[in-house]
Design a protein around this nucleic acid. Sequence first.
DNA 1: ATGAAAGCGCTAACAG
DNA 2: CTGTTAGCGCTTTCAT
Lengths: 337, 337
Amino acid sequence: MNETPAGRPTLETVARAAGASRATVSRVVNGSTTVRPDVAESIRRAIAELGYVPNPAARSLVTQRTDSIALILPESATRVFSDDAFFPGVIRGVGEALEKADKQLVLLLASTKSSHDRILRYVHGRTVDGVVLASMHGADTLPEELRAAGVPVVTSGRPLGEATVPYIDVEHASGVEAAMRHLVGLGRRRIATIAGPQDMVAGRERLAGYLNGLEALGAAPLVEEGDFMRQSGMDAMERLLARDPDIDGVFAASDLMADGALRTLRRLGRRVPDDVAVIGFDDVDAARFTDPPLTTVHQPIHEIGTRLAEQILRLVEGEEVEASVVLPTRLVIRESA
Amino acid sequence: MNETPAGRPTLETVARAAGASRATVSRVVNGSTTVRPDVAESIRRAIAELGYVPNPAARSLVTQRTDSIALILPESATRVFSDDAFFPGVIRGVGEALEKADKQLVLLLASTKSSHDRILRYVHGRTVDGVVLASMHGADTLPEELRAAGVPVVTSGRPLGEATVPYIDVEHASGVEAAMRHLVGLGRRRIATIAGPQDMVAGRERLAGYLNGLEALGAAPLVEEGDFMRQSGMDAMERLLARDPDIDGVFAASDLMADGALRTLRRLGRRVPDDVAVIGFDDVDAARFTDPPLTTVHQPIHEIGTRLAEQILRLVEGEEVEASVVLPTRLVIRESA
DNA sequence: ATGAAAGCGCTAACAG
DNA sequence: CTGTTAGCGCTTTCAT
């Protein structure tokens, strides 16, 4: 007969096996309560026996939902990826939270220029219900374009310029200010900073925190810029010392750069913290293992991820969300300061 | 009239605007060459003006393809995630390669037991064309289940037990053997190892390499196990020294554990490499920054990713692939040995 | 409580 | 080279 057993079972297959209609099977699959218990039961049995799994494409076509959320990591994010625990941490946080909501995480790596367009197409195609953007660089036009596309979006880190989309960020400046107060309280008077890239909000705000903190001292700022990675911290520290050999305190805008600074200081014969006290930012795992262990400003990386997920899920449901959520940071004091 | 301007434009909208049929528009969208140039041109214009983007769900429904590939990171993988550069590196490699092929990367984090089922459903639903599995633990039944589900799959790391799916791996044992030869060549005679978890192939094979290398020496093995993370390396080194204070060489199965060993050795007054030579495995970024810089066995993490992508793309196209690809490792000599 | 029927947006024969 | 016609597998009124 026409009993093609080939292919994966569809609603129709199940319906026939259970002696019901497609509609009723669909109701059972989607947990409708308006199905007679015994009928539902036999349908469930048929589903199990046939190993039926709904076809998400067919479902999306009619529901206009995909139950998946994109996490976009643009440009530099992927560069930093390899030696930084920030993005992995965010990914975990977002992933776990989405999993609880039974949503899928779709990772879009925006490494090249061309991928920018691909992403836009992808999002436009409504392959995802919403977007979490790890926006980093000021020049990034993606947040705007996504908003214009009418896709729910929330970004990690306040966008540079005016924030037109909701975001999750941490209290960069006040965390740094706490670090500065700590240094000053330690009696440090010649405090330099290794700043992050100034086209990223994190870089700017941490520098602002340093400058604010310095005001209390009435001292001149001493700034060298790095790229958040270790090597740049080593180099910046060397330039700093060349500019002023009497530096007795350093705030580095990332733990990796702080670790780099520690190395340069040691190499140039400075003892930490006796000669120079050092404080970092991030509180990544590696900070506990520097020599000496790094005093640092802790930021709740995992929570950033869960909050991002929470917000985007709300937005996708059409609910309102706060324009911004700013999570606290706190100073973790270890032996380097 | 019935000119509802609402909603996103569909093929039909474009067809009407360009005075053609849906089929022809579809041809243009999909780059068919059998369309008269001027017609194609006007269709393209209409597409641009209307901002038409194909609906992937509708397309998948008929083509049975989704043009996306899942990368599954099971259990421990996500745990290690935070302080290890391996998975981020693989993700980047896979992501970049897929991007070139215009495929999407869907990241599935299998953190909990329940997610195992979710993943199976997801894959069964054919939301992805193929799966790249970062299989790690011996007990993992996922490779089998996926194969049984008839989904193209390739794993990162040879599965424990018999390999039923194609995999990409590196030459663990021979890399370690090179490390052992180096140690022996340095005159080391009391060589211990900090092994990785023995329910992972990487852990086992690196231990096998150590044992092989030791044979040349005719010496008794000295083994403590860690979990690839830094803290476990610190602890294992301490146990090792307690068992034999005369150890003069150490092979650690990961750079992170090697770094841990370095710290314990320093704390206990051993000079590296004068008293004890240390070699790690992985060649992560951090290995260049340990004190002293770590001699280590390099594995091409990024290439593992690109190879994985390459293989799964082949499989999805229905082509044959080698049952296994094993990439070379090489010893990178730095000051710790 | 259940079924019939329509249709989501697209591709793929098949004619012409 | 182009249009017509059939669905892909599912949800969802609307009847019954």
